[in-house]
Amino acid sequence: MLKSIGKRVLQTLVVLFCVSLLIFILLRIIPGDAITTMMGEHANAETIERLTKEMNLDKPFYVQFASYLRDICTGNFGSSYTLNKPVTELISAAFPNTVMLAVFAALIAWVIGMVCGIIAAVRKDGILDRLFMGFSLLGVSIPVFMVAMLLQYLVGYRLHWVDISGVKNWTGFILPAIALGWNSAGSIARLTRSTLVEVLQEDYIDTAKAKGLGQGAVLLLHALRNAMLPVITMMALQISSLLSGAVITETIFSINGVGRLAVDAITSRDIPLLQGTVLFTTVIVIVGNLIADCLYTVLDPRIRKGA
């Protein structure tokens, strides 16, 4: 057990190292740098040259990378070139928004996904099956920015229920969470449906039916409980991907989240900020996968027994 955890941690470190190296290499290859972007329309060859020296961008890339790794090991993620603030400060300001959005979105995804999935499974191959599966898939079938804009227009502008953008309080998360959550609902619905269909065909359901329990009770008591395992695993995976930021939703609703931070960092060639945000989200995704695996092991009696 300890050995496998150790192996896992080691693998994670390798992945983080590679991700970090990848960013460095990629940002070397893309044309443009932070200084060019900072200078904008204004240009001045001397200034560009002076700043390149000043920011150590003239050093060979392995020197820059080594000094970056050294800094990380001492907990120093550097300062953003463009926002002139420590990367850790920027991420810790943006992350709570991302968490709120992810949690709300996950809740919505689960509600839509499971309700649709259950109904579809019970009415397998019927009209309701197609209808509810279609509905759950709708959110992922239209570009998310269209869903977001339609919600803004209908709920924010026509109905006046919530603000159109920004997050003055928790209500500001409702619309972006619907846009984002609906987007993830389809896969949960599909998984719920297929596992439930399979479980419903198994023998013990017949046994339960034979015992005289009503159909609804059978569902609730047995099938659902047994079908939940893969769904829960998937939820853990989804939460971790939601936590790594949703650029488009964050942009439309003007939410200061991790995704927007990362995209801005690429656009402005802000190496420290991009390194920081990507490493951060990578850790989140890896931890999320780890939790999903653990959940699977803990919840599935067959695996627990070592089968």
Binding site: Q11, V14, V15, C18, V19, L22, S244, G245, V247, G259, A262, V263, I266, V278, T281, T282, V285, I286
Partner: peptide, 13 residues
């Protein structure tokens, strides 16, 4: 590990 890197790197980025 290569696959892990690609999968954990935000795909849109």
């Amino acid at each position: 590990r290569l696959a892990d890197v690609v999968l954990s790197f935000p795909s849109l980025l």
